[in-house]
Write a protein that binds this DNA or RNA. Structure first.
Lengths: 201, 201
DNA sequence: TCCTTTCACATACCAGAGTCGGTGACTAGA
DNA sequence: TCTAGTCACCGACTCTGGTATGTGAAAGGA
């Protein structure tokens, strides 16, 4: 994929970055995100704080990196779904599958991301950046499902935004509850509501 | 309401607490929450940090106090709504009115609350505490609206949870966007979806 | 090969939230 | 009124995320 146009130095840097990442995630996993300090991570890797901050903008950005993979998952998921069902069933499949993915990722990671995303001094928020695939994908799934079925007093974009907002509310709730309920199960009635709401009156 | 069974000392304490609160809110308003330090607040009130922390658990708890008033608003709102419309219209009224209230409160406050609520070391989350009036109220509104109208494959509690989750998703989104869109307007299509979803099939 | 620029990494430091062991004025019980 | 205990308030301190400034080695152009 990426070609080997790396100088020895860049390669070394990438290696370091990866070591920091691994160490951080391991420590987070063992002791919990909050009780791991950046200094802990550096000590573990045997490197200075400066090194850490040349590779990551902040402590939470490490976990954001883990979270971001969800977008790849979405894209894969789409190619998997596309040839299969029709209309709103696709969206439902997408809904469930994304929630499963979130659940697999674990509350701790998701919580940190949702927390830092809404925090102060966030120059470029990730979750809500309109360039993310999710928006296109969900809108696409809805647009495809149009025909007789879907109500025509709302645009696909509007519907997509609504669905995504509800999805996030659900996940936010799940974080507040520290993952104490089954995300997919709790998501089912919500989607059911939205789904019926999609129909023409 | 509360009786005067206060010793001089307790009264003094309450007074101090109030002074801290006022000063804090004023400063937050003037300089923005993040750039106001706890020391700033203390300096303004002419008191020590220790005083601040005997009255408030943390910096954000000051704003939580402001936010909490929403529950009183909810209760008032209910008595206002109850004699009026019927069924789902009530819920819609409640939905819109609560969003208006949030909007009036301002993003800054709401953002801090939503941020700190999902943060670490939150022993007793406020927003999602099941003892809050919202849950009872929304569930009640839904239960009242039953009859021929509302679908019977979901309990009122389940429906209420779903509505509330979506509501929070919307508000969370609004915070991410730093209040850049009209909350009520954006909430309308979401409620429309939920509303249609409420109907029997 | 030399010389400039870049950049991975180091170190000392800062700011700001929250803590902790006092202290003295007030309360309450006898 | 005496006394024991409480608690509002103090302020120095800690802890930690993040920054500013350096430095030496690698890159790369001539």
């Amino acid at each position: 994929m990426t070609e080997v146009k790396l100088t020895a130095r860049k390669e070394q840097a990438l290696e370091t970055r990866h070591r920091i990442f691994e160490a951080a995630v391991t420590l987070f996993d063992r002791q919990g995100y909050d009780s791991v300090t950046v200094d802990d991570i550096c000590r573990e890797v045997g490197m200075s704080k400066g090194a850490f901050y040349t590779h990551f903008k902040s402590k939470d950005q490490v976990l954001l990196e883990e979270f971001v993979k969800i977008d790849e998952h979405y894209t894969e998921l789409l190619t998997e779904i596309e040839p299969l069902e029709q209309g709103v069933e696709r969206l439902e499949r997408f809904w469930v599958s994304s929630l499963e993915y979130i659940e697999r990722m674990g509350v701790k990671v998701v919580k940190v991301v949702f927390h830092s995303e809404i925090g102060p001094s966030r120059k470029e928020p990730y979750i809500s950046s309109r360039t993310r695939p999710v928006f296109r994908i969900v809108e696409g799934l809805i647009a495809d499902g149009r025909g007789e079925y879907i109500r025509d007093d709302m645009s696909s974009a509007e519907l997509a935004d609504s669905v995504i907002a509800c999805w996030r509310g659900l996940v936010y709730e799940w974080c507040l509850a520290n993952g104490a309920f089954d995300l997919v199960a709790r998501g089912r009635p919500i989607f059911a509501l939205l789904k019926s709401g999609f129909q023409k009156a």
